[in-house]
Design a protein around this nucleic acid. Structure first.
Lengths: 200, 200
DNA sequence: GCGTATCTGATACGGCGGTACCATTAAGTG
DNA sequence: CACTTAATGGTACCGCCGTATCAGATACGC
């Protein structure tokens, strides 16, 4: 059996090509031929590694999620060992904004998939929700910690606050993508929000 | 010239059919034939009233915006004559959530267009931004009024607060669309946010 | 070495989507 | 009543897309 290249790596290559196409020309422009051309392989190869287009889309989505999670994990790993709650929250907020090209791609393609999932039943929204819920839990934990440290007022509802943080950062991310705000403008709003949360 | 039906009304009919298709099957499923079938006219007619597909999409978008603005204006008109600022803000927030079918359609199709505008240069994001900016200004005005009435603390930055309101409600709207929250859950977050804003 | 299973290439097929073309009807004008 | 112009119907054309098919190559077990 001529396993010249690693199967998984090839799939990853193709998935990334799809993401690149989707980021530049939109998810509607993602065609098997376009992905093949972008990844430098033949149409047949794309067919071989992902049997159908639906599989291709799902595979690329999973790849994107995994990459995004890895990036977030790396970001968290950079924080000091007893993680300072406010720094953690700030890291999340800046990470949630499309600052660099990769982040912009994550947001744009992720949003495209989310919109697709609103009408297409073959694309379950469940993974999105699970991902967001996980982040929200992490934020709530950090806020609880901050509350114990006295940096956040005792009365606040940490889970609702976490929901506000996630929703706000996500909304600002889309606004930046649309061009309503630049990154600085969005950061201003986020810092303002943080100031109302901490040290009250 | 057999002007049997009103030109503008026919265009509106077709535009609404497009919105219906987009809301049910996604913007990618919008095809001239599908719109023709949904509006009960022939393909040729769609071609006649909107020369090209791009024109059709643009026309439907304009129609959607106008309808949305009308709905908001009607909602505002229902308020007592010296508009109570908090009621105004609350009206905005509940209106921003996809509570009924029409509102859901507005959100879903609007978001689809916004995502499309991220990659397609023929669809300028400018109208979106202008619309949002306008709402944001209205909210800022209401907040300023509330500040004068003493319902809102003097120190707060009304324009940033307005930005937070818009972003938060929009983000919650999409979350409801995705299925992460139901309308009640989203309303809980909004009320929480309102309570931190007013009567501080 | 040879067969067999894995992998890759080229190409064909059916369908659908946007657009174009041609004809026909209906209303207004002289 | 002719005649022009707006409005409408039917349908054909061409391209692209997803998928299927057929053939060839490459490496490994025996």
């Amino acid at each position: 059996m001529p396993r010249t290249v690693d199967h998984a790596e090839r799939r990853a290559r193709i998935a990334e090509a799809l993401v690149r196409v989707a980021a530049q020309e939109g998810l509607h422009a993602v065609t098997m031929r376009a992905v093949a051309a972008e990844s430098g392989v033949s149409l047949r190869l794309v067919q071989y590694y992902f049997d159908t287009k639906e599989q291709l889309l799902l595979g690329a989505l999973r790849h994107l999620e995994q990459q995004s999670r890895q990036r977030w994990a790396a970001r968290v790993a950079e924080l000091p060992s007893p993680v300072p709650p406010r720094a953690f929250v700030e890291a999340f907020l800046t990470e949630a904004l499309p600052t660099d090209e990769q982040s912009r791609t994550f947001h744009l393609v992720g949003t495209s998939y989310a919109v697709l999932a609103m009408t297409d039943p073959s694309l379950t929204a469940e993974p999105f929700i699970a991902n967001v819920d996980d982040l929200q839990r992490q934020l709530a934990d950090a806020l609880r910690q901050a509350q114990a440290d006295g940096q956040v007022a005792a009365g606040v509802d940490v889970s609702v606050e976490a929901a506000r943080l996630v929703t706000l950062s996500h909304g600002l991310g889309t606004s930046v993508l649309i061009g309503q705000y630049d990154v600085d403008g969005a950061m201003t709003v986020l810092r303002y929000h943080l100031d109302t949360l901490f040290r009250r």
